[in-house]
Design a protein around this nucleic acid. Structure first.
Length: 290
DNA sequence: AACGCGCCCTGTCCGC
DNA sequence: TGCGGACAGGGCGCGT
């Protein structure tokens, strides 16, 4: 489910709710969600720990255990991490229940179980996250950096943008949305992007992520924030899941293609191929019917 | 080294 | 109404 805006929304909520809480007892209902074996060792190791800070790196939730290492959570496609009342009957697909000393429960729920929870030392984590790409909302996300990355890859830009070793946090929804805003054909090879296009891409990525955070994320299927609420950004999507519907800018039908096995949505009129952007940028054009 | 692909899993929807 | 197949927001490991 979750791309950067959804994870960021959850993290901001948890960062208000969790610091200072102590983990009393951990129940692992779905051991395959836990990296560590046996999962029981993972559960016992968390018991008694105090939660320090909650932060985000890429699409990972980083829970600092106040000097006792880190608890990391990747939500995969359908993961949810939320604070609940333990009296609430855990629904089917509840994977981990962390009972807090103050009476609340930190609950992990995941229908498809693509998500993972694991422990790490700060040193091991820093080494691991060093392999990840640049944070798109950080100062390091510059046109110069994008140019360096793009010059070394002939992969189609949409696929390129989703690779977490280059730029983190952009998944299948926001990749299509960012390229629409940047007016770049998603099939264009990364190393064919001009500086002007990279500049628009940088802005497109940042704008769409910031706006989605403002709306607490996009709820497509399963996403819920840390309180179990839906995000509100879905209505603001311009191309994602809008195949055949009119482009909000030019009225032409939105197209769906498949790249690297994932659906891509774009407007062939507003995101023209090649450098065929001779005249002014595509604007509303009267469209002939038929 | 870089890249494409299949796969992990369950639920939903669509066409027949 | 039922059933098979396609597809769903991520990421890893494999083979080329």
């Amino acid at each position: 489910m979750p791309e950067l805006p959804e994870v960021e929304t959850i993290v901001r909520d948890l960062a208000r709710m969790l610091p200072g809480a102590r983990i009393d007892r951990v129940e692992v209902l779905r051991p395959d969600l836990i990296e560590e074996e046996p999962a029981d060792a993972f559960a016992r190791a968390l018991e008694g720990r105090e939660i320090g800070s909650v932060t985000r790196r890429a699409k990972n939730i980083v829970i600092d255990l106040a000097g006792d290492g880190l608890l990391l959570v990747n939500l995969g496609m359908t993961g949810r991490l939320m604070v609940t009342d333990p009296a609430d009957e855990p629904p089917l697909h509840t994977g981990v229940r962390m009972h807090l000393r103050d009476g609340r429960e930190l609950r992990y729920h995941d229908v498809r179980r693509f998500g993972r929870l694991w422990r790490s030392t700060r040193e091991a984590w820093e080494k691991w996250e060093g392999e990840l790409g640049v944070e798109p909302l950080s100062d390091g996300f510059t046109v110069a950096h994008l140019r360096d990355l793009a010059a070394r890859s002939r992969v189609e830009v949409k696929t390129w943008l989703m690779d977490q070793r280059r730029v983190v946090g952009v998944g299948n929804i926001y990749a299509s949305e960012a390229l629409f805003r940047a007016r770049i054909d998603p099939r264009k090879p990364a190393d064919a992007l001009t500086d002007a296009e990279l500049g628009r891409l940088r802005k497109g990525v940042q704008d769409v992520l910031r706006e989605a955070i403002d709306f607490r994320g996009t709820t497509f299927l399963d996403y819920r924030d840390a309180s179990g609420e839906r995000g509100e950004f879905a209505l603001r999507l311009k191309v994602y899941d809008r195949e055949g519907q009119p482009c909000t800018v030019c009225g032409d039908p939105v197209r769906r293609i498949v790249q690297a096995g994932r659906a891509t949505f774009f407007c062939p009129c507003c995101q023209p191929r090649g450098r065929a952007r001779k005249a002014a940028a595509p604007r509303k054009k009267p469209r002939p019917k038929g």
